[in-house]
Design a protein around this nucleic acid. Structure first.
Length: 199
DNA sequence: AAGTATACCAACCGCGAGCGC
DNA sequence: GGCGCTCGCGGTTGGTATACT
């Protein structure tokens, strides 16, 4: 279906582009507060910031929305991202939906800049060690990945060995989780269509 | 100190789906 | 059913910061 150019694409000549200013943020936030986060084209017009609707939506979703958490992705979150990516692939919005306060863009960026490299490094290491470690435990083969994350611990190694890198069937093996950790993980198990579909 | 390479991440782009008329 | 519009997603780009030589 052919798209109307004005609705899907921001004209390079007619709108502001690049980094957002504090003033633009403020104006956008005000308009969204009044009219809600919808009809982005109208929101953009009302805000009078000369940005396209798409750009406004992105800015709102990734920065201005309430309860956005920024930076410092914890080990637990990283762990979860790895697990979810293994399960869902590059479906960043679904992954982000399981990480309260995180945006799909942030997770995608984190994956591309941190985790994909770790995994590549890990695969490389695995290939090199394969003949020697043929009968060894998975956790031992995965060790380089954890070392790369500085704060790797034996506990985390165990988790990886029983979930992330050991086949989907055991992906959510929580047998050895601490209660506190299970509480945190409960975000992840809230009933949702995707999980029902995957079941 | 200067130049270059690399890492990070905000923002943009293209596409498909959903919805109302 | 066709069309136009809007929204949301994932991939990619480009600017800036930092590390390295």
């Amino acid at each position: 279906m052919p798209m109307a150019p004005t609705s899907t694409k921001c004209s390079k000549k007619e709108v502001n582009r690049g980094a957002w200013t504090a003033e633009e943020d403020q104006k956008l936030a005000q308009v969204v507060e009044i009219h809600g986060p919808k009809r982005w084209k109208a929101v953009a017009a009302k805000a009078g910031i000369n940005r396209c609707g798409k750009s406004c939506r992105l800015r709102w979703m990734n920065y201005l929305r309430p309860n956005i958490k920024r930076g410092n992705i914890s080990d637990q979150e990283e762990d979860l991202i790895l697990r979810l990516h293994k399960l869902l692939g590059n479906r960043w919005s679904l992954i982000a939906g399981r990480l309260p306060g995180r945006t799909d863009n942030e997770i995608k960026n984190y994956w591309n800049s941190h985790l994909s490299k770790k995994i590549k490094q890990n695969e490389k290491q695995t290939r090199m060690q394969e003949p020697v470690l043929e009968n060894s435990k998975v956790s031992e083969r995965e060790e380089p990945l954890h070392k790369a994350s500085e704060e790797g611990s034996s506990k985390r190694d165990d988790e990886y060995s029983t979930s992330c890198f050991n086949g989907d069937s055991s992906l959510f093996d929580l047998y050895n989780k601490e209660p506190l950790e299970l509480e945190w993980m409960s975000h992840f198990f809230e009933t949702d269509e995707i999980w029902l579909n995957l079941a």
